[in-house]
C-alpha cells in the first residue's frame, strides 16, 4: 500500500494504492489520525489505484470517519474500482460514507 497526500484548496486529497488489508490498514488509520491531530478536517480518499480492501480496511475507514464526524469534519471517497466498490456495497458501507465517481466531483462537495 502507498499513501500520497495532496492539499488542494480546502480539501486534503489522499491517494491510496495497492492493497488495504490486515497488515496495511493500521498504517492508513495512523496517517489519517496524525493529519486530523494536525487540524485537517476534510479528506477526499482517492481509491483509483486501490486493488483490494478487506474488513480491516473498512474498519480503518469507519474509525477515521467517526473521528472526523466528532470534529464536524468530512470523509469522502472517490474513484473506486469495481472489486473495491463491491465490498463497500455488500457491507452497507456505501450508505455510511459518501462515494463519488471522480476526484473533481468529490472536491466540489467540500
Amino acid at each position: 500500500m502507498e499513501i500520497i497526500y495532496n492539499k488542494t484548496g480546502k480539501a486534503s486529497v489522499v491517494s491510496v494504492s495497492g492493497r488495504m488489508d490486515g497488515v496495511s490498514a493500521p498504517e492508513f488509520e495512523e496517517k489519517l489520525s496524525a493529519w486530523i491531530a494536525e487540524g485537517e478536517t476534510s479528506f477526499i480518499i482517492d481509491f483509483g489505484s486501490l486493488d483490494y480492501i478487506s474488513s480491516a480496511g473498512l474498519r480503518s475507514i469507519l474509525v477515521t470517519a467517526k473521528k472526523l464526524k466528532a470534529k464536524n469534519g468530512r470523509l469522502l471517497l472517490c474513484t473506486l474500482k469495481d472489486t473495491v466498490k463491491e465490498v463497500f456495497e455488500i457491507s452497507g458501507f456505501s450508505s455510511i460514507v459518501p462515494i463519488y465517481e471522480s476526484v473533481n466531483s468529490a472536491v466540489e462537495q467540500i
Binding site: S55, L58, R59, L62, V63, A65, K66, K69, S91, G92, S95, I96, V97
Partner: peptide, 12 residues
C-alpha cells in the same frame, strides 16, 4: 444498516 454513529467496528 446502522448509520455512521451506530455502526460497530468489526463483525464484518
Amino acid at each position: 444498516h446502522a448509520d455512521l454513529s451506530e455502526r460497530k467496528v468489526g463483525g464484518l
